[in-house]
């Protein structure tokens, strides 16, 4: 499982790439693997305001529906429209063609709350040890 070093991460399993005044956001390799085949995404529109920790999109695998949370406050600069027709890009290449949105930051200091690669890797290992995460609980109800 790959977690690039130059990215920042959240406990909701999103990654951020800091580029000047904005960030590029997607979900991590761990998240796409846990979800399985992704078959639907709903993303905000260009210009929408987003608030840190609020849900701003939906991601669906065959078995589960999950919210996507804004990792940072600001407004949407650009949306990866290609995902709407081929959401499987997120499975195939979560850090490049699978990016979801670009957010223009309101407050760059929010970046300080994010996890480094080492911190995220440790978090993932702990979560795997402890087991049943949200997606799996949903799955059990669904089947």
């Amino acid at each position: 499982m790959e977690f690039p070093e130059n990215l920042l991460y959240t406990k909701e399993h999103e990654w951020l790439r800091h580029e000047d005044d904005h960030v590029v956001v997607g979900i991590t390799d761990y998240a796409q693997d846990a979800l399985g085949d992704i078959v639907f995404v709903e993303l905000p529109e260009e210009g929408d305001s987003v608030v840190k920790d609020d849900a701003f999109g939906i991601i669906e695998s065959i078995k589960a529906v999950s919210d996507i949370y804004a990792p940072i406050s600001g407004h949407i600069l650009e949306v990866n429209e290609a995902l709407l027709d081929s959401p499987s890009k997120i499975n195939e290449d979560p850090y490049h063609t699978g990016w979801m949105v670009k957010i223009k930051m309101e407050n760059e200091s929010e970046l300080d709350d994010l996890l480094t690669m080492e911190e995220y890797e440790q978090f993932v290992n702990e979560e795997r040890e402890l087991g049943l995460d949200k997606e799996e609980e949903e799955e059990e109800l669904d089947m």
Binding site: G36, D37, S61, I62, K63, N91, E136, E139, E140, M143
Partner: peptide
């Protein structure tokens, strides 16, 4: 395999990709 509970059993939900 990814194992899940189903009807009281731990069962494989998928081995690779469900699709």
């Amino acid at each position: 395999a990814r194992m899940v509970e189903f009807a009281g059993y731990l069962m494989p939900v998928s081995y690779s990709s469900l699709i």
